[in-house]
Write a protein that binds this DNA or RNA. Structure first.
Lengths: 328, 328
DNA sequence: GCTGGTGACTAACTCGTATTAGGTGCTCCG
DNA sequence: CGGAGCACCTAATACGAGTTAGTCACCAGC
């Protein structure tokens, strides 16, 4: 059973294919009588007619698809939320938001363009140079690094504010010597460095020494090593801001093993508010990122890139919020 | 700057568009001389020609796109791995694998079909009835519930084996009264129930009482309540198999709060081997699901659905492995 | 009775590619 | 010397929708 085309609908309804097209695209300026109109709609529904996406985008020159390229990143709640928000808001604007995995391992973005012609590309990480060129050649606009600020359009996510808030809350809780847990993973640097900068600035503003940085990967040993670094410091680190909850939880476990009491000996603040942050003992204080506002900004930038009208006159930026639990 | 078409290439190379098409599709049976061939290739490269996906799929009748529909699920390492594996293996077979979020909140799959015409749809969860009908109308084959066995093609994931292995390892560690931590989330039922079945069967086989089931959501209170249920049981539950690592970690925290020693008073085994499982203290014993083999089966089923030749004569199913850590 | 306008519709073309059904000119063969 | 056979290439069409430039019937107005 082949799928119905607009010609099928036309034949069945006893009109021309042109008329079917006019009716289904709601072109009221073309003078279609009400009886013909409803007749066509009825037949279209009866035959289960769905316009061919290929034919439509071939003719129109746009596909109404926005492609979102994802790198391989460890779990991040904010990112998950962003993905669903993007789907939702772009969907409301008449675009389909589809996701692909690109990275060293996966198919390069350039190869996908022979199958899929998005109107725009949003990349969470940075795009490879070859991918950039491929997009330029196909005249597809893109925004990369959408989670950290660079272009004006992406300034919705102020990663610096996160590090700042972490330190501020640690200091407010009476800590005066801060450690910062960063990550060695290169993909994460894009988020890590701005957050660390924010933490540094907060230390300066609050008149305490800059944070003592230790980097870890997601292993127990590296968390242990970081803890050792902080404890060996003669100034006596008593508060740690971690790049994200995963790192914070690794440190939390290292503290337990080493007999360091949290929060008494060492306060700890993560970022992301994973489900698990509330489930550990002690429960993890963290920064919750509300991406909904920021998504609007990204969607806005995307739509203006496409010359589409934007539906968000006011642009609330991403808001962040300290979630106090037991670890600080 | 408009993108180049095959006609542009033809004009520039001084040949017909037909010839360009033959060269670029490698139709060696059409007798293209080597000089023309290289000339066309050179011009195509120089102009940065990329064939139009819309035009191609319009003519060919297939898009070479496989769409994978994702429900909103909490973090699961195996699922992440599956997504990347699918991208990789389908990519190798000449298909683009793209992901969309569908669910109660998000755009229904049916609405996406006006923008995108995949050759097949793989759904991780179950498809809504309306989505099913829409796919049928568009004559797009689909496989849903790809993570749990129903059709013969999806039998790669033997969820039962997971529950079985959990119980077996608990019993091997000397536990004889087993609790099972399930989930109340309806989306997870599809995985939860088969795993529980497996656990039940293992208990039967090993000659111990069936598992005492308690369901939780991802909150501290529910984990606490589950623990209370097991401890209140007069038989003295001394080993718990959890639906997944997240649930297991919630229970781990509840044990700490309640002063229950893990693994001495209560052994605990999760499923999924999250990064975090190795980072807690005590570190979590868990079941690691190797999806690579199962992906091959899914890809195989998909390709045969599409009438494409499958590249995997031998079909290794998903293998699971017990990861012993400190909690059991 | 002829023009001009309007309401309701459609023939024919277009998008960019793949494919079918030829066309050249050349050599080989009897 | 008149095909047959080959190597090499191209004109024309189809895919399914959107769009332009009409056509046709009907009515009003002078």
């Amino acid at each position: 059973m082949k799928r119905a085309t607009s010609v099928d609908v036309a034949r069945e309804a006893g009109v021309s294919q042109t008329t079917v097209s006019f009716v289904l695209n709601g072109r009221s300026d073309m003078g279609i009588s009400e009886s013909t109109r409803s007749q066509v709609l009825e037949v279209a529904k009866r035959l289960g007619y769905v316009p061919s996406a290929s034919a439509r985008s071939l003719k129109r020159g746009r596909s109404n698809i926005v492609l979102c390229a994802l790198p391989t990143l460890p779990v991040a709640r904010a990112l998950e939320e962003l993905k669903e928000d993007l789907s939702l808001q772009l969907g409301a604007a008449g675009f389909a938001c589809v996701f692909v995995y690109t990275g060293a391992l996966s198919t390069p973005l350039a190869d996908l363009l022979q199958f899929l012609q998005p109107d725009a590309v949003l990349a969470v990480g940075d795009l490879a140079e070859t991918d950039r060129q491929a997009l330029d050649l196909s005249a597809i606009p893109f925004i990369d690094g959408i989670l950290s600020p660079r272009g004006p359009e992406a300034s919705a996510f102020r990663q610096e504010a996160i590090g700042d808030l972490q330190v501020s809350m640690l200091v407010a809780a009476g800590r005066d010597r801060i450690g910062y847990a960063g990550l060695s993973d290169p993909v994460e640097q894009r988020f890590y460095l701005p957050r660390l900068d924010g933490a540094r600035q907060a230390c300066g503003r609050l008149g305490i020494a800059p944070p003592l940085v230790a980097t870890l990967d997601y292993t127990r040993e590296s968390a242990q090593a970081a803890l050792d670094v902080w404890r060996a410091d003669e100034s006596g680190i008593n508060g740690v801001a971690a790049f994200n909850d995963l790192a914070a939880l690794a440190i939390l476990a290292a503290c337990r093993v080493a007999g360091v009491a949290v929060p008494d000996d060492m306060a700890l603040v993560g970022v992301d508010d994973l489900e698990l942050a509330a489930l550990t003992s002690p429960a993890l204080s963290t920064i919750r990122i509300d991406v909904a506002g920021a998504t609007a900004t990204i969607v806005d930038a995307t739509l203006s890139l496409l010359g589409a009208p934007s539906a968000h006159p006011s642009r609330p930026a991403s808001t962040i919020r300290f979630v106090q639990r037991e670890s600080s």
